[in-house]
């Protein structure tokens, strides 16, 4: 699913640099990425998602070499193949839960918001316990519910790969376990791969594999 070879990245004007000699995730595999803050875990996820272009090296996701795509190509690839659960959730305060879940479809011409997608959004929201709260605004939800809405948004396009950046970071232990359950169920159901950045060591046994970021960081 993911094959990275000799990836190098450096933020312009910053001392930070990232070097990933080799990293692979197999289809359907659930991998946890751990490491201290500031080492580049989130940067790696953004590089894999094609949000940022790599400096050098190779990133192959679902058989597609990201370097071979231009900005629009990477964007289209991301919205059709990759689901991203952001650390900051990135819900829009002026849209209700339903509109936040389907927002990706409204801003990308390559995705069509048809009846089938709407039904899938309702079902997905129902599965994560937001069925009765689709007309609520994000400010009216608890942190756990907002997390679930962000999860639904990431899973709606049925991505081949789900990237989760501290998806459970701000939750209490009960909600953490619940969100992770939902994430694992959805990934299992869609037969997607999962790469999740986490600091919660008690959640690690639930993943197929744990990767310590120290092994990449130069």
């Amino acid at each position: 699913m993911i094959a990275i070879g000799n990836l190098r990245f450096r933020y312009a004007g910053a001392g930070f640099s990232l070097h990933v000699p080799e990293f692979r995730i197999e289809p359907g595999e659930k991998v946890a990425l751990i490491g201290p803050s500031g080492v580049g875990k989130s940067t790696l996820l953004k590089l894999i998602a094609g949000i940022m272009p790599p400096g050098s090296g190779s990133i192959r996701v679902d058989g597609t070499e990201l370097q071979s795509l231009d900005e629009a190509g990477r964007r289209n690839f991301r919205i059709t193949r990759i689901g991203f659960v952001f650390q900051e959730l990135e819900l829009l305060d002026y849209l209700d839960v339903f509109d936040n879940i389907v927002h990706t479809y409204r801003i990308n011409p390559v995705l069509k918001l048809g009846a089938e997608v709407r039904v899938r959004a309702w079902n997905l929201a129902g599965e994560v316990g937001l069925g009765g709260k689709l007309k609520r605004m994000p400010r009216e939800l608890s942190q756990g519910e907002r997390q679930r809405a962000a999860l639904c948004r990431a899973l709606l396009p049925q991505p081949r790969l789900v990237l989760a950046d501290e998806a459970t970071g701000s939750l209490d232990p009960r909600n953490k376990a619940h969100i992770l359950d939902l994430l694992f169920q959805a990934v299992q159901k869609q037969q997607s791969s999962l790469l999740a950045v986490t600091h919660d060591h008690e959640l690690l046994p639930r993943f197929d594999r744990v990767v310590d970021f120290h092994q990449f960081h130069a």
């Binding site: 919205i79 990135e90 829009l92 927002h103 011409p109 948004r153």
Partner: peptide, 19 residues
């Protein structure tokens, strides 16, 4: 912040201008 969010969600600059 909001514009950054919709960029992350895969929105192009042209779409932001259209919005």
């Amino acid at each position: 912040g909001e514009i950054h969010t919709i960029f992350l969600l895969g929105c192009s600059r042209a779409t932001v201008v259209r919005l």
